[in-house]
Design a protein around this nucleic acid. Structure first.
Lengths: 348, 348
DNA sequence: AGAGAGAATGTGATCGATAACATTACCTAT
DNA sequence: ATAGGTAATGTTATCGATCACATTCTCTCT
């Protein structure tokens, strides 16, 4: 329903949506009272409240979040900075963040980081100084963006697991994929493999990637040979390319991959090299992306609760914004090894 | 850099980011002049402009988009309404939308639709009356949201292809997956298959899904038997379940699937039923999601340019918002059949 | 009866920015 | 010299909402 003008200026009537002034006039109260009603504030009688809500429904009034924010209302919007949302990890984390934020009444912005996003760029991606931000910082673009945020920005970030000697930041949150990689490696060793090779996802920092570290941890603890990690990317193709030379070596019987897409590429390269999976070669992925259970062979992989992590990340930010009232940060599941068809004992 | 106060009220100094008033004071001009500089308006001397830009850089001033919008500046924000962003079609479309919008200087909001999102919900997801919106309406939740938007909302939508007798809306855009399904069906027939079965994705409307329609078009035109379409969902599991009974019938030699995940499930069910792919059964997917080339067997599928569609959708919205200045709507690629290992002639 | 406290409501200022219009100075043409 | 037009800048109002404080009325206690 369109109505005209508002109280302070009636010399140029224009058609637009109902504002708080329109509601106030029709309900016969001040706009401050309407504000109290829509924000659940005290000092409003039940009769007045009911009358105002009735008028709100009749006029189809919708609050203007921009004006609320500008006038100093509570922070109710957040921008998510993230890299490629088509990658399972980022997509699932974003899904958790968006759901939790929306449920808490926040509006959610998204801004995708490119490889070459510059420092000056980052602040300009925010709607206003002081905008709340969540960063999905699983790769170096995310980490760079996190560092480039101005000091006035309330932020929470989902990051790659910190190294044990890394800086402690209470607003960062992660999944322990180092321990998960160690566990997956130990599983392969327990099947009888002499050692395990590793195709790595790129690190988000200059430090050794934590999944790589966990793989090395387990091999070191077992006194097994420690091969050079094979650098991969994020895609099946990069996994395929990473192992083509390695697979000529028949003594290679087990490969752990930094994500499921890498595993898919590795399995294809193995088939082309005439290696049977898991008879000749066991392949283990990471993340348990949705198609994994239906591959041929179905993929042994590590399930990571990215959605849970995203929800928890928002919970952390919410506590940062409103320590008194925000609910407890929700828990997220620990990594879990999911054994399927692609892994088994080494050939006799 | 934090500075205090602003011109009209200096009796309660507070620390916050630089505002347009701070820039104006330091540069020795009015805030209107600063506004002219940052918006590239006329009536600013080169010397004044340079001075203002210098002060902006020194103070680290960042415009407040909320205030800009409230004060009547040009629309520079858009909210994307979409269903499950982990599905390839929606994720890729979103990626195209976000990239195009960001590049054009828009801030992008995202709001994920749940199955039970109600009509009253939709308007409340927008930041203000009149907010620009893009809807990814490939499923029924998206279509319902599109219908529920208030009349004052400038909107562009990526939709399932319209039926030929459907309503003509200049602000809707789609990929011709009806023609693509017909083409894929004809391809399978040309391999020698007597007929083609079809596992359907859910329709976004009460009309026959357009991919289903295209499959039927091609079978009808070739005078081939027309099997009942098998209702599937969006996931591998639903594809797996959809065909378990069908695969007992050895005369079934070709299955077209409404998306790649369905194809993955179908292929798994085929293997469990002892059907060789493509020796006994050809399987064709839809969308060419990134893992398709690396599956075992690699998947024959129809490539759809969702990213291009997303970019074009933003282009359409931009023209709706600013007919004089917005660039031409970018073209997007036509669907393309990608033949890989999963399809071949029927068994002799 | 009078004082004090609290409930309920309203007024004015503010937030950061742009639109609309006003003002001033300078240049050109007659 | 005067008039007209334009460039450049500034002032005021406005956008929709909330904060901070003021005002009024009612109830309870002494």
């Amino acid at each position: 329903m369109e109505v005209t003008g508002h109280m302070p200026a009636q010399d140029a009537p224009r058609t637009r949506s109902a504002s708080i002034w329109d509601v106030a006039r029709v309900a016969g109260v001040s706009q401050q009272t309407v504000s109290r009603v829509i924000n659940g504030k005290a000092r409003v009688s039940e009769a007045t409240r009911a009358r105002v809500l009735q008028v709100i429904a009749e006029l189809g009034y919708r609050p203007n979040r921009l004006a609320q924010a500008l006038a100093g209302g509570p922070v109710r919007s957040v921008t998510v900075l993230t890299s490629d949302t088509a990658l399972y990890g980022a997509a699932a984390t974003l899904r958790g963040m968006e759901e939790a934020a929306r449920t808490a009444g926040f509006s959610v912005g998204i801004s995708v980081l490119e490889r070459n996003s510059g420092q000056a760029d980052i602040a300009l991606r925010l709607n206003r100084p002081g905008e709340a931000v969540m960063v999905i910082a699983f790769d170096d673009a995310g980490v760079r963006a996190l560092r480039a945020l101005p000091a006035d920005v309330p932020v929470a970030a989902a990051v790659e697991r910190r190294p044990d000697d890394g800086p402690d930041d209470p607003w960062q949150i992660w999944l322990d994929d180092r321990a998960a990689a160690a566990h997956a490696t130990r599983y392969l060793l327990s099947l009888g493999h002499q050692t395990v090779h590793y195709v790595a996802i790129p690190s988000s920092t200059s430090a050794l990637p934590q999944r790589t570290q966990g793989w090395q941890d387990a091999l070191g603890a077992a006194g097994r040979p420690l091969p050079e990690p094979l650098p991969g990317g994020w895609s099946p193709r990069s996994g395929y390319l990473a192992v083509r030379s390695l697979l000529a070596d028949r003594s290679v019987t087990a490969i752990l991959c930094g994500n499921d897409d890498l595993a898919l590429g590795v399995m294809r390269a193995a088939r082309e090299a005439g290696r049977d999976i898991p008879g000749d070669l066991s392949v283990v992925g990471f993340d348990d992306s949705p198609p994994s259970a239906y591959l041929n062979p179905s993929l042994t992989t590590v399930r990571l609760d990215f959605e849970g992590l995203g929800r928890a990340c928002f919970g952390l930010l919410h506590r940062r914004l409103d320590p008194q009232n925000a609910p407890a940060v929700p828990a997220w599941s620990e990594p879990e090894l999911i054994v399927r068809e692609s892994s088994g004992p080494p050939p006799a």
